[in-house]
């Protein structure tokens, strides 16, 4: 049986170790150089759209399909349809801003 030992707490101290952002990045770079990579899933990333439930939602799925079909029918890109829709939107805005003019949903007084 070996001699039981008692720890002299006074003899044990942590060495000064920097733990700022620069040191953290240096440790990360050293790890990456040896293949020690980030493996935890990232938290707080982009959340699904509450409207469509998609992370990279642009439009509702059925609208996306309709745009896709129309663009294919006309032989243009989807961007062309978006540009045309934008032009219509701007025209409507302009019409609404005209004094005394009602919008498409608001008959003029």
């Amino acid at each position: 049986m070996s001699e039981p030992f008692r720890i002299d707490a006074g003899a044990l101290r942590a060495r000064p170790k920097a733990a700022g952002e620069a040191e953290l990045r240096a440790a990360d770079r050293a790890g990456e150089a040896q293949g020690f990579l980030a493996r935890e899933p990232r938290r707080g990333g982009r959340r699904p759209s509450p409207r469509t439930g998609q992370v990279h939602a642009k439009v509702l799925p059925h609208v996306r399909d309709e745009i896709l079909e129309e663009a294919a029918r006309r032989g243009v890109t989807q961007g062309v349809l978006i540009e045309e829709a934008w032009a219509l939107y701007l025209a409507r805005q302009e019409q609404e801003r005209r004094p005394g003019a009602g919008g498409p949903d608001r008959p003029g007084s």
Binding site: A9, L12, K17, L24, A27, G31, E32, L37, A38, R39
Partner: peptide
Amino acid sequence: RSAEADGAVVVVDLEGVASRLVSRAISQAD
């Protein structure tokens, strides 16, 4: 750092993979 400051000897057990967690823990090792 918090456990060290509390006056405890810290023993860190890590997963058996090459991860950033390992390199960060080693950065604080005596």
